[in-house]
Design a protein around this nucleic acid. Structure first.
Length: 101
DNA sequence: ACTGTGACCATCG
DNA sequence: GCGATGGCCACAG
């Protein structure tokens, strides 16, 4: 018996520390056979009251998607101490996991 | 099976 | 840096 893709995603998500973020593509790359679009879809279906840090996931350009116009994602990120630029971009040195140069 | 849609991505101008 | 384009994949109608 193997756990479902979305459960694996939930596990990964729960491990992103406060004040850091990752991307759909990075998460997808950690789950064999999963495409970024599938990650996005799963996140879009999280229940409203969830404790999982869905807001710590942005697109490949490190920008918040700001779906359905609510700036909630940016708000949450700023609350955690992340600097969100005017264009919605996040600092690349706060990506999770660490990208070593 | 076919079509349209979407919290994406890489590439190009 | 931006918008358009094609590719991708799961899902609803």
């Amino acid at each position: 018996m193997e756990i479902s893709v979305q459960e694996q995603l939930w596990l990964l998500l729960s491990q992103i520390p406060e004040g850091r973020f990752t991307t759909y593509g990075r998460l997808a790359a950690m789950l064999p056979g999963v495409h970024a679009r599938q990650v996005a879809r799963i996140l879009s279906q999280l229940p409203e009251g969830t404790q999982l840090p869905w807001h710590r996931v942005v697109n490949s350009q490190f920008k918040v998607s700001d779906f359905h116009g609510s700036g909630e994602q940016s708000e949450r990120l700023r609350t955690e101490g992340l600097l969100v630029s005017a264009s919605g971009r996040l600092p690349k040195d706060k990506v999770w996991p660490d990208s070593v140069l």
